[in-house]
Amino acid sequence: MDNVIRRRTPGARLARAVLYTVLILAVLFYLMPLVVMLFTSIKPLDEIRAGSLLAMPLDPTFAPWAKAWGEACTGMRCEGVSVYFFNSIAIVVPAVLISTTIGALNGYALTKWRFKGSELVFALMLFGCFIPFQVVLLPMAQTLGWLGLSSSRAGLVLVHVIFGIAFTTLFFRNFYVSVPSELVSAAKLDGAGFFRIFWRILLPVSAPIIVVSVIWQFTQIWNDFLFGVAFSAHDTQPVTVALNNLVNTSTGVKEYNVDMAAAMIAALPTLVVYVLAGKYFVRGLTAGSVKG
């Protein structure tokens, strides 16, 4: 828009100053928790007790990070969050790949091979984006039991794939709708088949939406807590569940610096993705939640 405060009158200059002040206050509000988390995670305990929340670390140490990674107690066990960090990776990677692949094929079939009722199918699947997951928890627990997948990483992968498909299908469907169909029609006339057209025509232009879908699914699944806590056991917990256990384990002295280091470790993967690919992250957020 072009309607900016630009005139150089004193009033305008004052308005400009107020504007920047508010924006910088907001920066402080959003950054403060991250800064405190980082500072606390590298302070020794006595410095935390004696000093102020925002005080710079005088004697930075990475010992809390090492402890959070390898030794801190999460419930009964004391082997840090590393095991659970790798659990999360082992759950996230297959779940993201499978749900994105299925979503891509679904979106393709729903847009380039329409059939009677394909819009209905889409609407039917879309509803899965909106349900509160509490409504599927109990039946899911029982079904995982029947499948022999209770408390297993494979079970969590399955759950995340099942409830991720609605989102990935939505992403790809809305993307492929805007890909011109002329080329597809021509290829069909030439006798090219379903998968061949997908492979040769759609897939080469899909890079942006694949990135959006992968980032969205990665963030959702990495940050999941509800499914993690409901369907995992001690040795299969994702890192969010372990973090919560670590913070709430009350044996001996409360080590705030270790808590914060563990929180940083749990937060880093999604933060890194956000910093590296923020544009796609935002696009996923708006596509995943605005589009009905």
Binding site: Y30, P33, L34, V36, M37, T219, W222, N223, D224, F225, T240, L243, N244, V247, D259, M260, A263, A266, A267, T270, L271, V273, Y274, V275, F281, L285
Partner: peptide
Amino acid sequence: YPMALSFIVTGVV
């Protein structure tokens, strides 16, 4: 950026 974090991390902080 907070939107990229888990609600668990937010809660802990």
